[in-house]
Structures are given as structure tokens and as C-alpha cells.
Design a protein around this nucleic acid. Structure first.
Lengths: 155, 155
DNA sequence: AATTTTTGTTTGCACATACAAATATCATTC
DNA sequence: GAATGATATTTGTATGTGCAAACAAAAATT
């Protein structure tokens, strides 16, 4: 029960499958690394990156619905509900029921901190670029974006 | 349902801050999309992708330690402990204490299902390639990998 | 007009993951 | 050789996320 297994494994290591393993692993590692930077910058507002992103969308489109946000942020409706709850709890947005829909509006405070959040985005971008180089960031973003869109299909 | 969702990202936007937002968002979206495919394939074994990846490493290097796995999988030691617990619970690996170290070995069953798992990796890879194209997968993997390494620095 | 189907949102539960603190062992220094 | 510091691992706690089910409201079908 030794040699057979061993040779199989060695084959596996050099075959295509390692690439797939690597993409899965790398994509998650990249996600964690980038999220860490984002959360570090947005932590000052007591937000994580997805809260910040969501708040920007709400400020940009007052009255946006959870399902629209779900499409924009590529997160499931249930996750959106949870994020909105957090933001509501921090008095940055408020909800209004209208029929079966829910409309989400920024509060005055939510609009007020939006410029600061935009600055935080810039700092995040600067940190990426510092490490990866500005051109790489653009290239990487495009590739990752199109791959995500192709694979995820949008929720 | 109308075109209220103007800011839905169908295209990488041009302002700098949008790029950073986009990279953060895209990286996470890619991660989720890819993880979904991985988990779907490994779900037959009752595993998620990281369990499967870890099992491969353990089979390949019997007696590997949590900290080594932490480096390989780019996950924190505490996460490794939790994953090992799950794998141990499924009787696929076992732990041995040796001083302050913990050595992780595959069980017979763990070794037995390894070839099936390798096949699952191949199926995952096939699904990526089908959507993205084989050359794109390799290119994307390399880029994402080096970016993750540069940003994360390895844990 | 009443019932069924579809659509939008929210809850219950589960999981992977991380951080911080606790624990256990090894290595160094006095 | 005892005390201090360094390293390895595990627990407590918290969080973002998703799936499936529940719920609510609108639309469609009868």
C-alpha cells in the first residue's frame, strides 16, 4: 500500500490539477490579503470594507433596494440584510418599507462621512500600488474582475 | 428592475478609488465564485476545498505540523487547528503529540480517498478552463498568486 | 374574486476564518 | 539548575458569508 499511492501523488503534483488547486488557494489568499488592508483602513470608522462599499452605493443611489445591492456587491440577499442591519445600527443608513420592497437611504451622518470613506479608498489603492505597482493593479483588477464575472455570473 | 442600477459594475471604472474598490470587490467575488465550484466538487466527500487541500498535503508529507500547514495553505494556525479537527473527526487524519509539536498523519481511509480527491481537483480545473479558457487560467493563477504573496507576505 | 405562483426580504442555522489569550514545551541566560 | 524568553498549538470569541426556509406582498391564472 505504499508504492502505488506514492507514485500517484507525485503524478498529481506535476499535473494540471495543481494549477487548479493553486488558483483556488491563491484567489482566497488574495482575497484575505486585500480584505485585511481594506478593513484596516475602514476600521477607523468601525466598518469593514463591504460596509464601506455598501454605504457608498447607498449615498450614490438613495432608496436603493437590497436586491439591487445584492447585484452590485455580488453578495446574497441575506448577507445584504445583515450588512444593512449593521449600518443601520451605526446610524449611517435607514430602512423604509414600501410594499414588498425595502428602500435604503443614507442618514445625514452617513452622507457626512462619505468623503472620508472615499479618502480611505484612495489610501487602500495607494497601498496596493505601492506593493504591486500601479500598472499591475489595473491589469490585475481587470483580469480578476472578468474572471469573477465569468465564473460567478452575478450571484 | 429598471435601469436604476446604474452603478452596477459591468465595467471597470476609471477613477482611482473605483479601481481599489473594484480590486477589493473583484478579489472577493472571485474567491467566492471559485470556492463555490471547489466546494461543490468536494461536497461529495463532505469536505470543503480547504479540507481537501489540507488532506493532500498531509498525505504528501505525513507527520507535517500545523505551522508548516499554516505556511503552505496561507491560513492562520488557529484555522489549521479547526480544519484538522474536522478532518480528524471524519477519520481522515490523526494527530500525534511530540513535545510542543503536533504531527499530523493521514489514516488509511485518508490515503484511500486521496485519488478521488485528485480527480475532483481535475474536475474543478476543467470547470475553470471551460469558462475562462485554459491559458487564462494559468495566467490568472500566476498573477493572482504573486499578488497574494506580495500583499500577504505569507500569513 | 379567489387561488396559485412569483418576487423581495428577512430569519435560523452553519461554517471558514481571524485575533487575542491561554497553554505547553523548548531554548537561553544568569 | 532555576528563571526568563521564544516557539508551537490550542481555545474563546467574533464576524462575514451562504443556504434553506419562512414570511410578505405583488402578479398571474383560474
Amino acid at each position: 500500500m505504499d508504492n502505488v499511492t506514492t507514485s500517484t501523488i507525485t503524478e498529481v503534483k506535476t499535473s494540471k490539477s495543481r494549477y487548479s488547486a493553486c488558483l483556488l488557494f491563491s484567489a482566497n489568499a488574495l482575497s484575505r490579503a486585500i480584505t485585511a488592508i481594506g478593513d484596516e483602513e475602514f476600521g477607523r470608522f468601525g466598518l469593514c470594507y463591504s460596509h464601506a462599499y455598501m454605504l457608498c452605493e447607498v449615498v450614490e443611489q438613495p432608496g436603493i433596494t437590497p436586491s439591487e445591492l445584492s447585484g452590485t456587491l455580488c453578495l446574497t440577499p441575506s448577507t445584504i440584510t445583515r450588512l444593512v442591519e449593521k449600518l443601520e445600527q451605526k446610524r449611517l443608513v435607514r430602512r423604509e418599507s414600501e410594499g414588498k420592497k425595502t428602500l435604503i437611504y443614507p442618514t445625514a451622518e452617513g452622507e457626512a462621512i462619505q468623503p472620508e470613506i472615499a479618502q480611505a479608498w484612495d489610501r487602500v489603492g495607494a497601498r496596493y500600488s505601492q506593493v504591486l505597482g500601479e500598472t499591475s493593479v489595473c491589469q490585475l483588477t481587470k483580469q480578476v474582475f472578468s474572471a469573477a464575472k465569468a465564473l460567478g455570473g452575478g450571484i
